[in-house]
């Protein structure tokens, strides 16, 4: 299956069924949660002042919930009505807007102390119609210029997205620069295929040296970020030296189980002996 942004426009792809599915999927929730915390970390807001944030592509409010928990006041925009409906059901605290970010925002200058966006920007890279306002560069330009003016000086925007090529990154950063943003791309775990995450970290204002693009996380991914089945797969890789797969229910396992049963007071647990866990001969 190809990537969702190539299948249909967001307001259609995230219909009623997909919106529910997306929100209820615990793996999605976990990923969204991790990325929101990371985005907030990159946002590096001053801790003494409660901030007013914009969540771009807020969807069903999965990241909005974290903003609530962290004590931020926020407003969210999304283009998919079904996702917003789910957000309504989940009773998130922020104000929601049905808005196409490619058409630009109408917020007054200096409205927000910062903005985050999780897994959204790639949706701007496809043209839906042949109208000139529908071309990706035009939509990106509209998005970044109106976003830049809606932000306070100094502030930051952190946009996590899934680029499918370096050309896309190039296009996005060049449009953002033309709109007046400083900053650049931050890549977490650049050498990992799965944990690799691309953040566009944009800076508004601030003199030279005052604001710097943060570093991406290096090295191996954390244990927690692995999927459950990934770990199982690794365990299955552990085979005996002879190349045969190690039996799961070997002698150790049997002894452990019997010990457990004895501890629980189960009756009739066989005694341990040198024959425990040994294979019967073929003639038996």
């Amino acid at each position: 299956m190809s990537r969702p942004e190539l299948q249909a426009p967001p307001e259609i792809y995230y219909g009623d069924a997909e919106a529910k599915k997306y929100t209820q999927n615990t793996r999605n929730q976990q990923i969204q949660r991790d990325m929101t915390y990371r985005a907030l970390e990159l946002l590096a807001l001053p801790s003494d002042q409660p901030a007013f944030l914009l969540d771009i592509g807020c969807g069903s409010g999965l990241s909005g919930e974290i903003l609530d928990e962290e004590g931020y006041v926020w407003a969210g925009v999304d283009i998919a009505p079904s996702m917003l409906e789910v957000a309504l059901e989940r009773e998130v605290e922020g104000d929601l807007f049905l808005q196409d970010i490619g058409q630009g925002f109408g917020f007054r200058p200096g409205s927000f102390d910062g903005a985050i966006s999780i897994s959204v920007l790639q949706w701007l890279l496809n043209a839906e119609t042949s109208h000139p306002t529908s071309s990706p560069p035009h939509r990106l330009n509209r998005f970044f210029t109106t976003l830049h003016s809606a932000l306070r000086n100094p502030s930051r925007v952190v946009l996590q997205f899934y680029p499918s090529s370096d050309d896309q990154i190039q296009l996005i950063t060049s449009v953002a620069q033309k709109a007046g943003f400083g900053g650049g791309i931050v890549v977490d775990y650049p050498n990992s295929k799965k944990a690799r995450k691309v953040f566009l970290c944009l800076l508004v204002g601030g003199g030279v040296g005052q604001q710097q693009v943060p570093q991406g996380l290096q090295g191996e991914e954390e244990e927690d970020s692995k999927a459950r089945c990934e770990r199982r797969r690794e365990r299955e890789k552990l085979r005996t030296k002879s190349g045969k797969r190690k039996s799961v229910k070997d002698k150790d396992w049997i002894l452990k189980k019997k010990e457990l049963y004895r501890k629980r007071g189960k009756e009739g647990v066989p005694n341990d002996s040198k024959y425990t866990g040994r294979k019967r001969r073929a003639v038996f």
């Binding site: 929601l96 807007f97 049905l98 808005q99 109208h131 529908s134």
Partner: peptide, 9 residues
């Protein structure tokens, strides 16, 4: 409670 901010082409 959700304002529709979408514009026509």
């Amino acid at each position: 409670g959700i304002p529709n901010m979408l514009l026509a082409e």
